[in-house]
Write a protein that binds this DNA or RNA. Structure first.
Lengths: 210, 210
DNA sequence: ATTTTTCTAAGGGTATTCCCTAAGTTTTCA
DNA sequence: TGAAAACTTAGGGAATACCCTTAGAAAAAT
């Protein structure tokens, strides 16, 4: 008997997965949750073998939550559920301890196969995503063409730029010199391949950094 | 007996709504579809009273599809399903003939109420969206707080800004003086309520002007 | 414990954007 | 056809962003 939990803020998704699984005798849905907090609290009492986890939750960032869960409850295997087909995104999630990755357009067979595969301790990726990863992994790696990694500070500056703050305002907000803010902005531009602040925001949105 | 169809490329959403409705005796789900094309073809044979339509479909833009359906099959009442909480978005959909608007985190009660309300011929909006629309509609109207209308030239400049071009480069691209470009940019900022070019792009993306 | 990365910040420019006012021309629409 | 809206241009100045280099201190990773 495989115990499954589901966390998704879209109620219909929650009920959809539940209804798809309820005919399976070897699978039991033990709990469903609409946010990260509830999920963590419920896990204090009983942990599932597998958690279907929506990455876009209202309260906690899904990637962070994945990390938390795999650390606090190592027996729980997380299968990420999203609409992002972005390969870099998949990578980040897997790096943070997820065992599988499913798009929300997955059909019943894929859902079941994901559960079976992951419960065996193997990683499960949806077919088309697997292909994409392979294709892109064959590109150059050193240039980090995929998901540019911003540092904590850079992320803060990025956020502030997005909020239309000026360098001066950002420096006051973060208690650092304007010159430092500029340095961060230059680094962000360089990492994202942007020509100016507009490009930073444009690309950051595209790459889901915001 | 109310006949319902569902169109959503996320299979779990499809099954979720279906399972939520299957206990209701006065409602019958007559068909489910994963894309716009299938939906239109199926409607040639039989039309539902109500269609739950995901606005983000792989093949056809949901807003356009709403328009098509309400024209070709005027008996079908469309309830839009999305994650967008953007008020301007809601307006656009309703303007194109939709009878209701639900976020995907809607619970069973809301789903049923939406069906009942819409089948009576009334419009149904989810509570929190209704509030937002009211709030924003009470603002100044002459300034077109909702969907700011940009002129043809302003749209071109907006596009160029989005492409990270400088004022100089834009002027060369459009064969106008840099000063004119600046004038347009100022007008765009004013219309969108942006503080700078970053804001222009940010808001333009939010309001789907790009 | 040591290397690497990140964070910090400065000087010294240049380029660009932002903001105001003003006004002639063209297009659109009632 | 006349009025309104949109498009065009401009001057001038303040503010901000961009770009380069350099470099010490702090934090993180190995």
């Amino acid at each position: 008997m495989i115990k499954v939990s589901i966390t998704d803020d879209h109620y219909v998704v929650l009920k959809g997965i539940e209804s798809l699984l309820k005919d399976e005798k070897h699978i039991r849905v033990i709990s469903i949750h609409e946010n990260g907090q509830d999920t963590l609290e419920a896990f204090e009492v009983e942990q599932p073998d597998i958690l279907f986890l929506d990455i876009n939750l209202p309260d906690i960032n899904g990637i962070v939550l994945t990390k938390t869960i795999t650390k606090s409850f190592p027996n729980v295997r997380v299968i990420a559920l999203t609409n992002h087909e972005d390969v870099s995104f998949v990578k980040r999630i897997l790096d943070n301890g997820a065992f599988g990755y499913l798009l929300k357009n997955a059909h019943k067979e894929e859902l079941l196969q994901a559960i079976d595969t992951v419960s065996k301790g193997e990683k499960y990726l949806q077919k088309d995503i697997e292909k994409k990863i392979l294709n892109q992994s064959l590109g150059r790696k050193e240039f980090s063409a995929l998901q540019p990694k911003l540092t904590r500070r850079e992320t803060e500056v990025l956020q502030a730029i997005y909020e239309q703050l000026t360098t001066q305002e950002i420096s006051e907000k973060l208690f650092i010199s304007p010159k430092t803010v500029e340095a961060h902005r230059m680094n962000i531009m360089s990492k994202l391949g942007a020509k100016n602040s507009v490009g930073i925001v444009k690309i950051a949105i595209q790459k889901q950094l915001l």
